[in-house]
């Protein structure tokens, strides 16, 4: 395996006195799709947020592309090749789809044209709805917009927080297909947090299982899918 694009070493994160992450270590190689599965409250989203520096890790290191980004302010991290599609999509509801996308490229100060083109090739639906207010889009379209908006900054690492949340199975399948396509065609590295373990493990090259702030298992997607503990705990036992 080549040198990792993202490496998390023994990271512990606290909310006040509550230890949400207890010495978590994971790594993501360039071009990989890595998924993080676990139950509600296991600390999946906290791990993604810690990578972004909000909340900051109390101990341990976050290394991105060979650089220690643990102590950097969030807006620096998010301008340096990492993008996040946050949990619950969080599109700007009163602003148009086009404005939402522009905001994705804004802090980078880069030309939005190539990003827009990529977004519309990936999600043609967004091109049709450019002038529409983002709040009037369907859940699936909002998720497409959230991903496309994150991609506007031309990141090397995309953090996806529960993209299938609240979506119909068919729609979440479309989203997962788009992620696969993106990874295959552009070599984009993806760290995906999911409750929908089945779909996530099928999509990912590798996966980690997070239980109450600790990594309990790791392996390729196929391996994890085959593990009886994973099947019992996260796949509804079938």
């Amino acid at each position: 395996m080549s040198t990792p694009l993202l490496e998390i070493r023994e990271v512990s994160t606290f909310y006040g006195a509550v230890e949400a992450l207890k010495g978590v270590s994971i790594s993501v190689a360039p071009g990989e799709i890595v998924t993080l599965i676990g139950a509600n409250g296991a600390g999946k989203s906290t791990l993604l947020m810690t990578i972004c520096g909000d909340p900051r890790a109390r101990s341990g290191r976050v290394i991105f592309d060979g650089q220690d980004i643990t102590e950097r302010p969030t807006h620096h991290i998010m301008r340096g090749g990492i993008a996040q599609s946050p949990e619950g999509r969080r599109v700007f509801p009163r602003m148009s789809v086009h404005e939402n996308l522009l905001l994705g490229a804004q802090s980078q100060g880069i030309d939005p044209a190539p990003g827009l083109e990529q977004a519309f090739t990936l999600f043609p639906r967004l091109e049709e709805r450019q002038a529409q207010r983002a709040g009037t889009l369907s859940g699936g379209e909002q998720q497409m917009l959230a991903i496309a908006r994150a991609l506007m900054s031309r990141p090397r690492l995309l953090l996806l927080d529960e993209p299938s949340l609240g979506l119909a199975p068919l729609v979440s399948k479309q989203i997962f297909q788009a992620i696969r396509k993106l990874n295959a065609e552009t070599g984009l590295t993806v760290l995906l947090v999911e409750q929908n373990a089945n779909q996530a493990l099928r999509l990912a090259h590798r996966g980690y299982v997070l239980v109450t702030g600790r990594i309990t298992m790791s392996g390729t997607g196929r391996e994890l899918l085959a593990r009886p503990e994973v099947r019992d705990a996260y796949l509804g036992g079938h």
Binding site: H75, M78, Q84, P86, R90, Q106, S107, S153
Partner: peptide
């Protein structure tokens, strides 16, 4: 509209 989304976009 959304402060958290702003932060996630590097604003």
């Amino acid at each position: 509209e959304d402060e958290i989304a702003c932060r996630s976009l590097g604003i």
